[in-house]
Deep mutational scan, measured.
Amino acid sequence: NNDALSPAIRRLLAEHNLDASAIKGTGVGGRLTREDVEKHLAKA
Rank of each mutant, 00 (worst) to 15 (best):
L32A: 04
D36W: 01
N2P: 12
L41K: 01
G25A: 09
G30H: 02
G27Y: 00
L18A: 04
N1V: 13
E15K: 08
L13P: 03
P7G: 08
D19I: 09
A44D: 11
K39S: 12
P7Q: 12
K39V: 10
T33R: 06
A14V: 09
A22S: 14
K43H: 11
D36S: 01
A20Y: 07
E38W: 08
A8M: 06
N1C: 08
G27V: 02
E15R: 04
L13G: 01
L41S: 03
K24N: 10
T33Q: 06
I23T: 02
S6Y: 05
I9T: 08
L18R: 01
E38I: 15
N2H: 10
G27Q: 03
E38H: 10
P7H: 08
H16P: 00
D19S: 12
A22I: 12
R34N: 12
I9P: 00
T26K: 03
T26E: 03
I23F: 00
A14W: 08
L12S: 11
T26C: 03
E38Y: 11
T26I: 04
A14N: 12
E38A: 09
R11Y: 04
N17M: 10
A14L: 07
R10T: 13
R11I: 10
A4S: 14
L18H: 02
A4C: 08
L12M: 13
L32K: 03
I9R: 02
E15F: 05
K43E: 12
G29T: 05
G29L: 08
G29A: 09
A14D: 15
K24P: 09
L32W: 04
K24Y: 03
R34V: 15
L32C: 05
L12W: 03
D36E: 02
G25V: 04
H16Y: 07
E38T: 09
D3Y: 00
A20M: 10
N1G: 14
R31S: 14
I9K: 03
G30K: 04
G29S: 08
V37G: 01
L32M: 08
A42L: 10
E35S: 12
P7V: 10
A42Q: 12
A22Y: 08
K43G: 12
L32F: 03
N17F: 09
A8K: 08
R34W: 15
N2F: 04
T26D: 03
D19M: 09
G30L: 00
G29P: 02
D19Q: 11
K24D: 07
T26P: 02
D3R: 08
N2C: 07
G27R: 02
E15M: 07
N1E: 14
K39A: 11
A42E: 14
K24R: 13
L12R: 10
G30D: 06
D3G: 10
E35N: 10
E38P: 00
K24E: 12
S6W: 08
D3N: 10
E38R: 09
V28K: 10
L41Q: 02
G25L: 02
L12V: 11
D19P: 07
L5I: 13
A22M: 15
R10D: 15
S6D: 15
A42D: 12
L32G: 01
L32I: 15
N2W: 01
D3I: 07
S21H: 07
E35A: 11
P7W: 00
A4W: 15
R11Q: 15
R11F: 05
H16R: 01
L32E: 01
N1I: 13
V28R: 09
G30M: 00
R11V: 06
E38M: 14
T26R: 03
R34C: 07
I23Y: 00
N2V: 13
V28T: 12
